[in-house]
Amino acid sequence: MEILNVISIYIVPFMIFIIIAHGIIRRVDVFSSFQKGAKNGLETVVQILPALLAIFVGISMFRASGTLDIIANFMSPILNFLHLPAEVLPLALMRPISGSASVAIVSDLINTHGADSIIGRISSVMMGSTETTFYTLAVYFSSIGVHDSRWTVKAALLADLTGILASTWIVNFFSA
């Protein structure tokens, strides 16, 4: 486990080093190239802010109303069987549908329970290892006029389910 921690600390600076060094070798104006990209990043965040705001309001109200506790109580036998904490259920349900909603839910979970708590880590891994499946499906297939995607949804949701369950198991395994 110790070696994995070391790798995870070095991977980011290592990547940045490779990217900048390779850019310089290839005579890219890395300074202005970086700024152009950074501008894109700024725009992306500004673009998702309205959606983030809408979802944050909805999720906060939902949590404060106690509805989540009622649903979690109701579903606890299944959740226990899958070793899935009830708190991460909204994230698991929302992840394939909306990217900005998942960002909102995961930030809410991390702010409430702490980034390094079990729930904080499970939701981090779940968020990082799955994709906005339905969005990707819609964009890719509609671009070439496909309306019958055959078994794509089934296979993609199986992959999502794997990611969701594995995130819980892997975090539990790493903290054991």
Partner: peptide
């Protein structure tokens, strides 16, 4: 409170998202 947290979250995202977008633009050009 939710509306407020959305804005603080977006602000914290601004920095690191721009950092990676910037680096990735170099990757694309090089």
């Amino acid at each position: 409170q939710g509306a407020g947290t959305a804005v603080t979250t977006a602000i914290t995202l601004l920095g690191i998202m721009s950092l990676w977008s910037g680096l990735m633009n170099i990757v694309q050009q090089s």
